[in-house]
Write a protein that binds this DNA or RNA. Structure first.
Lengths: 125, 125
DNA sequence: CTGCGATATGTTTCACCGAACATATCCATT
DNA sequence: AATGGATATGTTCGGTGAAACATATCGCAG
């Protein structure tokens, strides 16, 4: 009577550190994604319940870290402004997601090997 | 005239989150390694310039998170005490290192793809 | 039975990060 | 030129986690 394991599988989170000090991890990737979906930094911040300032700071970091800004920002205009992913932004996001996927696949065995040694958690709530 | 790239290659760091709340990342892995090399928690702490308390806390976390303690500790004795990796400890460490390696390999292309878009850093000190 | 070196833990202090608050600025539309 | 929604940016405040400090305990060697 083994019910299908929903999502008790471990999650692998990875972060890339570059030589220039820049880094990208789950937070920035998610932010890029939500900015693309919502069309604005502030909307993305709200959606992720993250302060606008923080969201903006992360965008600023990314834009300066890369040769081409990942997020293109517009002030004023029809709806006051907005933000969208640049070509580079789309590319970086896609690469990062692919990296996550591949890493998870490639390491599945090792992950399982570690998990097998974990404390029992069958009766946890 | 392409000189050999020393270590400006980006470093991939990954952390595993398990369902029971336990997690393991570069810090714990390194600590395990140094404990194995030095034979004591305090020596490991010194070697990594980490407070003994912090090192001990991490060990404690790991030991409770896994069914079998990863680090076996001894108080008193010939040289006052000591610590060593258990079988499980060795296994977990090995798995984690392998995971790192495989992930880095599997994601090499994506990593390169992201790095190619980074700000120029050829003239950085 | 005392000393040593390491483990084991509690308490306090501090630096940093993010949240919250506060404005300032921009500009197509009306 | 007035509006409005979003970007842009500085400042203050509080919580969290690590560092620092302080002991307590253990057990063999001598």
């Amino acid at each position: 009577m083994k019910m299908k394991p929903q999502d008790d599988e471990p999650r692998l989170r990875l972060r890339l550190f570059f030589a220039n000090g820049a880094m990208i991890g789950p937070g920035k990737a998610d932010l890029l994604e939500v900015i693309r979906d919502t069309g604005s930094i502030s909307a993305a911040g709200r959606a992720m319940s993250m302060s606008y300032k923080r969201a903006w700071s992360l965008v600023e970091e990314m834009n300066t870290a890369f040769r081409t800004p990942l997020v293109e920002r517009a002030r004023g205009g029809v709806k006051g402004g907005g933000a969208a992913l640049s070509e580079a932004g789309e590319t970086v996001l896609a690469h990062y997601r692919a990296l996550e996927r591949k890493a998870q696949e490639a390491g599945a065995d090792e992950i399982a090997g570690i998990q097998a040694l974990l404390s029992d958690m069958s009766d946890e709530t």
